[in-house]
């Protein structure tokens, strides 16, 4: 029973990681790629860690796996936000079929402060 659950979790986790990589290759602009790699890869790593913890059935290993998963859950959104903000400020273009860009004109180009109204 535990072996089946572990194998299933590992397969689901690697599947989600493959989906993340597929999204990073196929999506048309940087911000969609960030969305794909952050969410799906974190879920995949979490599933694989859970599967490995069930496989080893050991408190020390489970604690380490939990620590890695929690660390990824905390740091992945932070890193993605920092990277997306830096990319937007440095002028990486959005996809040409993007319908709305609510940040357009709201960043001060010098101080990088965000305003609720247009700065220009």
């Amino acid at each position: 029973m535990a072996a089946i659950l572990s194998a299933l979790l590992i397969l689901v986790g690697t599947f989600f990681m493959l989906v993340a990589a597929l999204g990073v290759v196929r999506f048309p602009d940087l911000y969609m790629r960030l969305h794909s790699s952050t969410k799906s890869a974190t879920l995949g790593v979490g599933c694989v860690m859970l599967g490995a913890a069930i496989h080893f059935n050991d408190v020390g290993f489970a604690t380490q796996a939990l620590a890695i998963t929690l660390f990824l859950l905390v740091t992945a959104p932070v890193a993605a936000h920092l990277l997306g903000r830096a990319a937007y400020l440095s002028g990486v273009p959005l996809w040409e079929h993007t319908l709305s860009d609510e940040l357009r004109g709201r960043y001060d180009q010098v101080t990088h402060d965000l305003a609720s109204t247009d700065t220009k």
């Binding site: 940087l30 890869a41 790593v45 992945a76």
Partner: peptide, 20 residues
């Protein structure tokens, strides 16, 4: 930034690879 996204994903995948 695209390359940095790919590097970040490679690191996450490597963490999964090591667990496996």
């Amino acid at each position: 930034p695209d390359r940095v996204v790919a590097l970040d994903l490679l690191a996450s995948l490597s963490v999964g690879w090591i667990a496996l």
